[in-house]
């Protein structure tokens, strides 16, 4: 079995981890981690599967670079929303107290 296929299989497992985490965990920070793990899994499948004959393939590699930038963009937005939500939660508690 080539290294590419091996890492693609690992990617499949990571993707499944991420999906389970995204559905099962309720804390926003945990969901953000889960989404990143899921993305990493998909990236590994993309590159690993493309390189299962053992030669480097620049096309999926470039796509994963794009994907990593998209991931951090989404992560930052999600964190901003989660923090704002928490601030609202704090404000509400303060008003109630």
């Amino acid at each position: 079995m080539s290294a590419g296929l091996l890492y693609a299989l690992a990617g499949a497992a990571l993707f499944a981890f991420g999906v389970a985490g995204l559905i099962l965990r309720s804390h926003p920070l945990r969901k953000i981690l889960a989404f990143n793990v899921m993305g990493s899994g998909a990236f590994l499948v993309l590159v690993g599967l493309g390189q299962r004959d053992g030669t480097a393939d620049p096309v999926p590699q470039a796509m994963v670079l794009t994907g990593i930038v998209v991931s951090i963009a989404a992560t930052a937005l999600a964190l901003a929303l989660a923090r704002r939500q928490r601030e609202h939660g704090n404000d509400k508690e303060e008003r109630d107290a």
């Binding site: 993707f15 991420g18 995204l22 899994g41 937005l77 989660a82």
Partner: peptide, 26 residues
């Protein structure tokens, strides 16, 4: 809160879509 829920849903959706793309490319 609605936006955060929307974001999680849309990210799960595009994640699944991306894995599909990876499989097609493979």
């Amino acid at each position: 809160t609605a936006a955060l829920r929307y974001l999680m849903a849309t990210l799960l959706g595009s994640g699944a879509y991306l894995l599909g793309v990876a499989l097609l490319y493979g």
